[in-house]
Simulated assay, not measured.
Amino acid sequence: MARTIVISGGTNGIGKALARHYAELGDQVVAVGSSDEGGRRLREEVPKAHFVRSDLSSLRQTRDLVERLNAEHPMIDALVLAAFRFNPTRVETEEGFEHTFALYVLNRWLMAEGLRGPLENAATPVIINLCGAGQGGRIHWDDLQLKHKYRAVTATMQGARASELLGTAYASERTKYVLYNPVFVATGLHEPFKQPLRGIVRVASAAFAQPLAKAVPPITALIDHPPAEPFTTWKKGKILDRAVDRNEARRFEETIRALTQPG
């Protein structure tokens, strides 16, 4: 029986590779991306995948997306959260959030929470959150939007820690929540940078990054056969023993819930 796989960030990198994999298996793939150009390339390369355009850094558009997915797909077997952008300089969204925080934290929480219904309707539902889990990031409680002393690595690491906390707080009887850190993968990481750093990152990626063909199979294995535990953390195909403070997880979830209230 064909499954329904929803992939945010499904027009590039690992997201697109997963879209291709499951579309070729005959599953119904919904690939969400922010640009028409990305959608055009996806349709050319993976014609069986269904492209949905949405600015995932926008809370309003994310809510609209969740409403649409609920209406069109009463059952979702897997939700893959892969949308990410490395911002060398601080960017603020129209809604006033630091862009990395909006895309990497708020969007992922809204999608996981908003699609609980369709996920719970599936036989073996799973959420795969592709993130930098296990790297030692922390929450900057006094400056979540990093208005002071912004650094791209700081924003990225805070997002990774946010995934650990929100994954811990996600309570479901059936839907398994998986954090997966693919580490360094050849997915065009050099593109956001300006020269000469862009060239340096490109060379480093070519020399050291894990190819997509090697990075994708461990992820598909977790989608096809979700872990028995409600919440697990993985790094490059190996499970990690990560103890997360549940009090901090609840505090952070309450903070995110307040930040994402409409109006």
Rank of each mutant, 00 (worst) to 15 (best):
K149M: 07
D142F: 09
L212T: 11
L56G: 01
R40Q: 15
T156I: 00
M75P: 00
L115M: 05
S34K: 10
E254C: 09
Q28K: 14
A228S: 14
T220I: 05
P74L: 05
T11C: 11
P118F: 01
I239S: 05
N247R: 14
A209E: 06
V153T: 13
V30T: 07
L222W: 02
Y104L: 08
H73M: 06
A17L: 04
V29F: 01
G96I: 05
R202P: 09
Q195Y: 11
I128N: 08
V32W: 04
G263P: 12
A71H: 01
Y104V: 05
R174A: 14
I139N: 02
Y177L: 07
L110G: 11
A243S: 14
V178M: 06
Q210E: 12
H21Q: 03
L65V: 08
T233P: 00
G167Q: 03
N107M: 14
I127F: 08
H99F: 13
R161H: 12
I256V: 10
F252H: 13
E94W: 07
H99T: 08
Q28L: 09
I256E: 00
G96D: 04
V30G: 07
P196W: 04
Q261M: 10
E94G: 15
F231D: 13
T154Y: 13
M1Y: 12
S34N: 06
F193V: 15
P88W: 05
L115T: 03
F51V: 04
A215S: 02
P217H: 07
D77F: 15
I127Q: 07
E92A: 00
L81S: 11
G263A: 13
R251H: 14
F184E: 04
E95P: 09
T220P: 00
D36E: 13
L197P: 01
T4I: 07
Y150H: 07
D241R: 10
G114H: 02
A123F: 09
Y180I: 08
P226S: 02
F97T: 10
R63E: 03
N121L: 08
V244F: 13
A215M: 02
A207Y: 01
T187A: 12
G167F: 01
F84M: 06
N12G: 11
M111C: 15
T168C: 11
I7Q: 01
A171T: 14
R202H: 06
A2N: 13
P182A: 15
V91T: 07
L59E: 04
G39P: 01
T168R: 15
H190N: 15
Q210S: 09
K235W: 09
E44C: 00
G188D: 12
F208W: 12
A112D: 03
